[in-house]
């Protein structure tokens, strides 16, 4: 019974990893790819490690496997958030079908309220935009 459950866990975990990789290859922009990579692959790794924990039926091994799962579930969102922030700052283009970009609207509102808080090149750029308009 436990053996069957274990086998199912391993295959489901590998399937999630495969789907995550497929998403990273096929989705149209970086932020969507990040979503596939982070969520699907972390769940896949979690399933596989849970399979390991059940397979060996040993307290030490199970503890280590659960530790790795906990570590992945804590660090995956943090890492994804950092990459997304850096990518947005670098100016990675969004998919052309994107209909809402709240961060950009928020930044614009913030600079209109207090222009002094911006780095120089950005306030220069915005001043020029205002002059042109």
């Amino acid at each position: 019974m436990s053996e069957r459950f274990n086998a199912v866990l391993l295959v489901v975990g590998a399937l999630f990893m495969l789907l995550g990789a497929l998403g990273v290859l096929r989705l149209p922009d970086l932020f969507m790819r990040l979503q596939a990579s982070t969520k699907a692959s972390t769940l896949g790794a979690g399933c596989l490690l849970l399979g390991v924990a059940i397979h060996f039926q040993d307290l030490g091994v199970a503890t280590r496997a659960l530790l790795v799962i906990a570590f992945f579930f804590l660090t995956a969102p943090v890492g994804a958030h950092m990459i997304a922030r850096a990518a947005y700052a670098v100016g990675v283009p969004l998919w052309e079908g994107t209909i809402i970009d709240e961060l950009r609207e928020q930044k614009r509102a913030a600079t209109e309220a207090a222009p002094g808080n911006l780095p120089q090149w950005q306030s220069e750029q915005q001043r020029q935009e205002r002059e042109n308009a």
Binding site: A21, L34, V68
Partner: peptide, 12 residues
């Protein structure tokens, strides 16, 4: 992103 994913897959 791809490199990060490869790391997770290696663990799996």
């Amino acid at each position: 992103v791809a490199l990060d994913l490869i790391g997770v897959q290696a663990v799996g």
